[in-house]
Amino acid sequence: MKPKDKKTKFRYVWNFPGFGGWTAIFFGFLYIPIFVLVCYSFNSSKFAMIWTGFSFRWYTKLFSNDDIQSATINSLIIAFSAAPLATIIATFSALAIVRGGEFRSRELSNGLITLPLMVPEIVTAVATLIFFASLGINFGLMNVIIAHTVFCIPFAYMPIKAALEAMDPNLELAARDLYSDKPSTFRTITLPLLTPGIISGFMLAFVISIDDFIITLMVAGGGSTTLPVYIYSMVKMGVSPEVNAVSSLMLVFSIFIVTLYWIFNRKINN
């Protein structure tokens, strides 16, 4: 009896009454709006707020909407360009910063990487707008890709850095002791071990790019409207089941990638 007694006492000490219920409310607060949005996307009524019945019609309508399709293609082109660029830059930076030992520009480089996280998004957006406008740089989608690459770098960097730090440097040393030269050590030992981190970084950068709104809104010109910017213009016209449908798809897509990232990372950690 005694040990059990002790256990209940532990419980008693850790747990505060009501915290469990509060946490349930907390998760409710986080997820109910998302849930409501998805539910209402199946509303057959033309008016978002009045429920008249279950229907897929708004989803089928999406597939005949050219504007949504071209916005989706733009979003994908941008994310598939910005995320790899950001990941490559982040990988090289992480290698230099984590493995480069102590050097003078290390703090500076660290600061540079986190800078896009520190500066409020609206400031970045406005600054980039002024920058492109006053230099007369207008390469259409390229402008948006450049802007996205910049703020995706820190997100790609985080998992890569973590993976590098978790890596046992003895492995590389051992490989080198076995007369493997530096480039081949990198290729046969470092890179394979780092790949999961790089893939994770890519996924995060990808999600961040796909979801970005404010910077794209300010920087995008004709023909480079992305899905979030298009959704914004739809929301401004009033919330309709069609907006709910395209938004639900976006939500599900982001959640899918992040879940993939999570499962992937758990596998590695195990």
Binding site: I34, V36, A48, M49, F213, P228, V235, S247
Partner: peptide
């Protein structure tokens, strides 16, 4: 990790 814009406009429905 999901779209801030979409999460915010969900509140219009609520």
């Amino acid at each position: 990790w999901t779209n801030l814009l979409i999460r915010t406009f969900a509140w219009i429905i609520i």
